[in-house]
Design a binder for these strands. Structure first.
Lengths: 199, 199
DNA sequence: TACGATGCGGACCGGCGGTCCGGTTAACGT
DNA sequence: ACGTTAACCGGACCGCCGGTCCGCATCGTA
């Protein structure tokens, strides 16, 4: 059921391609002006190798994105509080959203590239479903949320950390990481409890 | 300073093109498989005419979108309550978001097409700035919101009515218009005041 | 070392958005 | 009515991009 033995040069090329793609997406301003030929050339291999390794453009970007996201998913599904399971919902929801925000800030190149493929809406990605299910589950345990509410609320909260919004705030205007985290934190608090931060 | 006289056939062709594009975007499943040649052919004109009239693909879609959006903007900037100016913020913010949601539901084809151009993030559109400024202004008059909060909150609220989310809920799963409106309304209420709908 | 399987690479393809220019036609003065 | 002119039309054409293909090189193995 598992793929047999990948050849050594194949593995090497795969790694080169991932590294080259990573760097190109990080350096070029807009994801769509990183072409597949660019990636292949930067990695020092032919286009055929690129497409054999990743199937298509979306496959390549998904691979990069998944690799970066994995530590965060790990921390949430099996880590210590305040991210891991066993954390009280009122504490976990803000923590998860903060972690997601930081991830999006640091990896907006990839997140934007992923959305820019056009071949799939962000809502078709399987990791989206996981985040949504997690938040929904946590919200359902919060007093004042019924089952219907929590589903939409989870979507709305996730929408607040979408990559292009983050890019607009951090990249476009000069908002820095800490400011944005604070604003998101306040927002989440308001949604969760309604108690004012001040006054 | 203004364009002089458009020729009669030019105006006719322009109208045909808008109508053809409208219908194609509405009928085809995904926006990116409506090609410019398709639009020209459906309107019974050549591609040259299409591009002369609208500049490029983005220009065409923007025109369609703006035409549909105009009544809503009109109602908000110069209409009666609860949308128009002079409405108390606590009433106007939910009303505006509801109007925007309905617009997105009815025109998701166009909104999705606009985002799918890739040439510009939704946050670069000038109408986005108008909605943001409006909401921000209203929020600043609500007790418990300081100037910093209201800017981010406005972004977050607008993110909750983004076209692809709406499409995912209404198109993908079978959520109907009234359910979605109710959920958004609850969410906005929670953000604004924190008073629970029940209990 | 010799041999099969596996992977490599870049010429190639189809289709897209966008351009160009010779032919056509509307607008207007007479 | 008609000629002149400037604007407009249309579709062949271009450059580019994602993706394919297949003869050839390379790896792993006996």
């Amino acid at each position: 059921m598992a793929d047999r033995k990948p050849r050594k040069d194949a593995a090497r090329n795969r790694a080169s391609l991932l590294a080259a793609a990573e760097e190109l997406f990080a350096s070029r301003a807009r994801p769509e002006d990183v072409t597949m030929s660019d990636v292949a050339a930067a990695a020092g291999v032919g286009k055929g190798t690129l497409f054999r390794a990743f199937g298509d453009r979306t496959g390549l970007i998904r691979e990069l994105y998944a690799a970066r996201l994995e530590p965060v998913e790990e921390a949430v599904t099996a880590g210590p509080p305040p991210l891991g399971p066993g954390t009280p919902p009122l504490e976990r929801v803000p923590a998860v959203l903060d972690a997601l925000l930081c991830f999006k800030i640091d990896n907006r190149h990839l997140a934007l590239a992923l959305e820019a493929t056009g071949s799939d809406s962000p809502y078709d990605a399987d990791h989206y479903d996981r985040w949504h299910a997690l938040l929904r589950g946590a919200l359902e345990q919060v007093p004042g949320f019924d089952a219907g509410d929590s589903g939409f609320t989870a979507h709305a909260l996730l929408a607040a950390v979408r990559a292009d919004l983050v890019e607009h705030l951090v990249g476009g205007r000069g908002m820095d990481r800490q400011q944005l985290r604070a604003r998101l934190s306040d927002f989440v608090e308001r949604v969760l409890g309604g108690q004012r931060p001040e006054a």
